[in-house]
Computed example of a mutant assay.
Amino acid sequence: MKVNVRQAGLADAEIIAPLFDGYRQFYGQASDLPLAREFILDRLALLESVILLAENGQGEALGFTQLYPSFSSVSARRIWILNDLFVVPQARGTGVGKALLEAVRMHAAACGAKRLALSTAHDNPAQKLYESVGYQRDTSFFHYSLNVD
């Protein structure tokens, strides 16, 4: 399958919204397309994230990934947080995820980033994909979170 990956712009929000809604459903959230559309529009309009969109040769959306900028104080360099990666069910196992991850790596390198970081559910089968392209499970640090709502 031919896969084209490109950086999405504001005009792509309508294409990305159903993918983002599918991503949220994968993580147990109820479908809410208006919420997905608004969230994606805000991220793109405010330049708060970079979204890479995978399409087939006919321009049909196959998946996306969303990166958020952050920084490493110790290295005094940018890092990118790979927060979202989603491939439509019918395109899984066809190389779309791998193409998205390669585009993410190239984007980070072009920005002079120190590293890419991601976290995923313990039972997410995409762990094998991440490890196959060089991501390593962190064994040096504990990660904590605090819900504030």
Rank of each mutant, 00 (worst) to 15 (best):
L85M: 07
Q136E: 14
G134Q: 10
Q136A: 12
I15K: 05
L101H: 05
G97F: 13
V3C: 10
D32I: 07
A30C: 08
H122M: 15
K2N: 13
L67K: 00
S132L: 12
K128R: 14
G9S: 10
K98E: 14
E131W: 13
E48D: 06
K98N: 11
Q58F: 09
R77N: 01
L82F: 03
C111L: 14
R43A: 09
L53S: 00
A30W: 04
A121D: 13
F71I: 03
S73V: 02
A103S: 13
L41D: 03
R77A: 04
P89D: 06
R37C: 10
A45I: 07
D12W: 08
P69G: 01
S31Q: 05
L19W: 06
L116M: 12
N124G: 01
Q66T: 03
V96D: 12
V50D: 02
P125M: 09
G22L: 07
N83Q: 05
D32Q: 02
F141N: 12
R77M: 10
E14T: 12
Q25S: 03
R24A: 07
N83P: 00
L116E: 02
D149V: 09
S119L: 12
L33R: 05
Q25N: 04
V50I: 11
V88W: 04
V104S: 05
A91H: 13
L82S: 01
P18G: 11
V133L: 07
E14I: 11
S119N: 11
Q7M: 14
V74Y: 09
L47F: 08
S73N: 04
S72E: 00
N147H: 06
F71M: 02
A54R: 02
A99V: 15
L116P: 00
N147M: 08
E38D: 00
A99C: 11
Q127K: 12
S75T: 05
L146W: 04
